[in-house]
C-alpha cells in the first residue's frame, strides 16, 4: 500500500465527538499516523506479519493503520470506553480486525513476549507531567522489537536521556520531525488551530537481539 493511500484511509476514520481533556485526547491526524506506520513497515519491517499494540489507541488510528499494513494481529488499549467503541466501529468500517482492551496503560500486566511492536501517540504530559514517558516505559516492557512514539520536539533531549539512562534502551532515534495539528477541541483553546512540532521516535528495547536500527 502506498503512503498516500494509507493516509486517505485514515482520513475517513471517525474522531472523538466529545474529547476528554483529562486524558489529553487529541486525534492522531492521518498525516502523522500514516508516516509512523509507513516508516515502521518500509524502513524496519516492524509491522507486516507482526503483533502490534497501540497504546492509548483512542479512536484506533495507529492500530488500524498497522492492520492495513498487514500486521498479523493488532491490539488497541485504552482506558476510555467511548474511545474503544469508536475504535471498534472504525475497524469494522475498514474491515480490519483489531483486538481491543480497556485498561490503564500504567496497570498493564502482560505475560510473555507476544507483542513485537508498540505504536503510540501518548498524552504529551501537559496535563499530567511525565505521562508520555510512563507510556514509553510500559511500551518498552511489552515490545520485543521496537516502540514507535510521538513526543514534543521541545522535549527531545529529555526523552533521549530518560530512554537511554532510565529505561536502558538499546537505541533511541528520531526518525523525523512532523507538525501535529491540534484543532480547537476544548474551550481553553484560544486559537482555532495550532500546530506543534513533534518528533517521530523509534526505540529499540534491550531484549531485541537481532534488529538494531539501520
Amino acid at each position: 500500500m502506498k503512503l498516500k493511500q494509507l493516509e486517505s484511509y485514515l482520513g475517513n476514520l471517525d474522531q472523538f465527538t466529545d474529547p476528554k481533556v483529562e486524558l489529553e485526547q487529541y486525534p492522531t491526524g492521518p498525516h502523522i499516523a500514516s508516516r509512523m506506520l509507513f516508516s515502521a513497515e518500509n524502513s524496519f519491517g516492524d509491522v507486516s506479519g507482526k503483533v502490534v499494540a497501540d497504546f492509548g489507541c483512542g479512536c484506533g488510528t495507529l492500530g488500524i493503520a498497522a492492520a492495513l499494513l498487514d500486521a498479523e494481529y493488532a491490539i488497541g488499549i485504552d482506558v476510555d470506553s467511548d474511545s474503544l467503541e469508536l475504535a471498534s466501529q472504525n475497524a469494522e468500517d475498514l474491515e480490519v480486525d483489531m483486538e481491543l482492551i480497556q485498561c490503564d496503560i500504567n496497570n498493564l500486566e502482560w505475560k510473555g513476549q507476544i507483542v513485537d511492536t508498540v505504536v503510540m501517540n501518548p498524552p504529551f504530559g501537559t496535563r499530567k507531567k511525565g505521562a508520555d514517558l510512563d507510556f514509553l516505559k510500559m511500551g518498552l516492557k511489552v515490545a520485543s522489537q521496537a516502540v514507535y512514539s510521538f513526543h514534543k520536539t521541545s522535549t527531545r533531549d529529555h526523552v533521549k536521556r530518560t530512554a537511554l539512562r532510565n529505561f536502558n534502551v538499546r537505541s533511541a532515534e528520531v526518525l523525523c520531525e512532523l507538525r501535529f495539528d491540534v484543532p480547537q477541541l476544548y474551550k481553553f483553546h484560544k486559537k482555532k488551530e495550532v500546530d506543534i512540532a513533534v518528533d517521530l521516535w523509534r526505540f529499540v528495547p534491550q531484549k531485541n537481539q537481532e534488529r538494531v536500527a539501520k
Partner: peptide, 21 residues
C-alpha cells in the same frame, strides 16, 4: 477478544502473584 490476547492477559490486581491464566 481472541485467545492470543487471552494468552498474554494476566490479572493486574495489586498483590496478586498467580494471576495467569
Amino acid at each position: 477478544m481472541r485467545l492470543l490476547t487471552h494468552n498474554m492477559l494476566s490479572s493486574n490486581i495489586k498483590g496478586v502473584t498467580n494471576g495467569f491464566p
